[in-house]
Design a protein around this nucleic acid. Structure first.
Lengths: 214, 214
DNA sequence: GAGATGGTCCCCCTCTAGGGGGAGGATCGC
DNA sequence: GCGATCCTCCCCCTAGAGGGGGACCATCTC
């Protein structure tokens, strides 16, 4: 008997999963939780073999639960979307399968049975993401090309500041700022400061909603 | 008997809703669809009184379906998140209720019964959003100040393009682009094209990850 | 008809931005 | 010590950006 714990903040999803898994031979749903904290508290008593874990939950999200669960029961992550970064991170943290909620329920059942013996069920989209990541790692993060000072200047660019403002902000001469900006453009292969600003935002140096403030 | 149609790409959600609603007196689930196009095709034959509509679906999403459904059956929108813009837009398009999937199933049943007689069930979060929107409308969206052509130019700015590139892209003279850029900066109170680009990204004219792509 | 608005293009002007150099000082590793 | 890297600042030069005008034409409104 495979003991399954369902962790999802959506009641309809929990009911759906319980209903589907309940009809399967050899699978028993031993509990369900609406958030990560309750799940971690309940696991010692429920002793599940497999945890079906929602990625997006209020409070403690799926990744946080995964971190705490290292070495415990097998985990299958259920997500509404295949968010690139989260897939990678979840797999790194030991998730066996990473399924979208759009997946046919048969696949979920399949993943549960596989997880009970340490196996994985990968969707086409997930597999593609993992491969893409390996590819990306080869053509390295362009940010590594920049010196610490250049990264500071790039962050200022991403805020929408002029050379003179950056000079004041970082206590530099305007000529020095120009030198850094030129290096940034050359190293990243960008045409002008506007493209640099966009790049900085894409890299998350500055949150989009906190740019332009001031 | 209230005839209900369930439209959601997640099979587990459909099963969950069918299970919950099926236990209610006076409610009958007459069908379920996995995407918007099938839903629109099936509605004339199924004649539902109430449509439970998922906001996020592949292909034709919830808003698109709502647009086509104007004047038809009552619609209750189900969403994973309370996305500000979508809530407003959905309500504007005639959705009676806008519920999060984290809502207790009792509320869904309540919303279905209300919708059958033209009523609404609002969650606290949704109500707050609507109030906030009314507040925002007072201090007006700055984008309304721009003409359609200026918005196009602003989108190009947000891509990181130069005046010459924008001119080629929009089939304009470079002087004309300069005129538009100047108007944009003046109307929005921004200092230069870099700030305009950031503003355009914040407004969602261009997705951050698709900026800079050539 | 007059007026307002939006779109297109032009001119002149100033100033910032950005490329291409040079150069001194600090730190680190060999 | 010596090379490498980084940070700082300077000069000259060109091209682009941005402000401030003006102009023509179309459409819509009153």
């Amino acid at each position: 008997m495979i003991r399954v714990l369902i962790v999802d903040d959506h009641e309809v999803v929990r009911q759906g999963l319980r209903f589907v898994l309940g009809q399967e031979d050899g699978i028993e749903v031993v509990g369900e939780c609406a958030d990560g904290a309750h799940a971690l508290a309940a696991i010692p008593a429920l002793r599940p073999d497999v945890v079906l874990l929602d990625m997006v939950m209020p409070g403690m999200d799926g990744l946080a639960v995964l971190r705490e669960l290292a070495g415990g029961p097998a985990v299958i992550v259920l997500a509404s979307f295949l968010d690139d970064e989260r897939v990678i991170e979840a797999v790194r943290l030991g998730a066996l399968s990473y399924l979208s909620k759009t997946t046919a329920v048969d696949r979920v059942v399949e993943a549960v049975r596989a997880a009970a013996v340490g196996g994985s069920v990968l969707e086409a989209g997930t597999a593609a993401l993992l491969i893409e990541r390996v590819r990306q790692d080869r053509r390295r993060n362009p940010m590594d090309l920049l010196t610490p000072r250049e990264r500071e200047v790039l962050a200022e660019l991403a805020r929408g500041r002029s050379n003179a403002e950056i000079a004041r902000s970082l206590r530099l001469g305007r000529e020095t700022v120009k030198t850094h900006v030129s290096s940034i453009l050359a190293k990243l292969g960008l045409a002008d400061r506007t493209q640099a600003a966009i790049f900085g935002l894409q890299q998350g140096l500055i949150r989009l909603d906190e740019a332009l403030d001031s």
